[in-house]
Amino acid sequence: MLTFIGLGLFDKTDVSEKGLSRIRNADRVYLECYTSRLMGATREGLEQYYRRPVTPLYRSDVEQDPDAMLEEATTKDVVFLCAGDPMVSTTHADLRIRAASRGIPTAIIHAASIASAVCGLSGLQNYRFGKSCSLPFPQKNWFPTTPLDVILANLSQRLHTLVYLDIQDDRYMTVPEAVALLEEMAAARKEKIPLYVGIARAGSDEPVVRAGPGELVRACDFGPPLHILIVPAELHDMEREYLEMFAGL
């Protein structure tokens, strides 16, 4: 049995009671550590809370070499943990398909996702979001502009864009860094992004939400990670009022 369990947004207490019970009774516990992370928890703290040892998994373990874990799941009760909700990431959907193709029973225990949390924190309406995108750190001779293409396509349809910010080992892209990258891309194309909403530490007791044009948002101190960015389309009246009240627009 392979059970995908979402851990929520920030710390060890965000997991559901159902998820916690399944973790504590599992034969083996794996924690996926590359698509997102619980910034309010350590692996050692999770192990103490779960009363079970936790084995970390990284990109190659999940996408290229999951065979050992899947083999265990043919005879044992294995849980696969991730921050947020399990099936927001396509790599987790692929892993479930692989398990099912081997005849391994699977299940999902859901949790809070950043995809829905940003709506509550920003007041931007769920049904007005278009395609999301990921913004990677540029590398030498590599500066992908696909995120700008997605944003401009959404703006042309009056849709908001959720921009996931890169995580590399212990390096976390910040909202100001992300805005600077997008502003550079837009300037090169003679385009203009009128408004940004930056969010930091969703799910914590003190999240930060700031809205405004690029120059203003780049100057804000969002504090520690994780950060995420929204590029809103034209605002409805209630969305604007919400951002004015809760995000300093």
Rank of each mutant, 00 (worst) to 15 (best):
P56H: 00
P56G: 00
P56R: 00
Y58K: 08
Y58R: 11
Y58I: 10
R59Q: 09
R59V: 06
R59L: 04
S60M: 04
S60A: 13
D61G: 06
V62D: 08
V62M: 05
D65C: 11
P66A: 11
D67V: 07
A68F: 03
M69K: 02
M69T: 04
L70W: 09
E71Y: 03
T74R: 14
T75H: 14
T75W: 01
T75Y: 01
T75F: 03
T75P: 02
T75A: 10
V78A: 06
V78G: 04
V79A: 11
F80H: 13
F80M: 15
F80A: 12
C82A: 14
C82Q: 06
A83T: 15
A83K: 06
G84H: 07
G84Y: 07
D85H: 08
D85G: 09
P86D: 14
P86E: 11
P86S: 12
P86W: 04
M87Y: 14
M87H: 12
M87N: 09
M87W: 13
V88Y: 07
S89F: 15
T91M: 05
H92V: 12
A93P: 00
A93Y: 12
D94A: 10
R96A: 13
R96N: 08
R96Q: 12
I97C: 05
R98M: 13
R98N: 02
R98S: 10
A99N: 06
A100F: 00
A100L: 13
S101I: 02
P105C: 02
P105R: 05
T106R: 03
T106M: 05
I108S: 04
I108P: 01
I109H: 05
A111P: 06
A111G: 13
A111T: 07
A112T: 14
A112D: 08
A112C: 11
A112V: 15
S116T: 15
A117M: 08
A117H: 03
G120K: 04
S122E: 11
G123E: 09
L124F: 07
Y127I: 06
Y127C: 02
Y127T: 10
Y127F: 15
R128H: 14
F129S: 12
G130P: 07
G130W: 02
K131N: 12
C133D: 04
S134W: 00
S134Y: 04
P136V: 07
P136N: 00
P138R: 11
N141F: 01
N141C: 02
N141Q: 12
W142V: 10
P144I: 02
P144N: 10
T146A: 14
P147N: 11
L148Y: 02
D149T: 15
D149S: 14
V150W: 00
V150G: 05
I151M: 05
A153F: 00
A153L: 04
N154Q: 07
L155M: 13
L155V: 07
L155A: 13
Q157Y: 02
Q157I: 03
R158D: 15
R158E: 15
L159G: 05
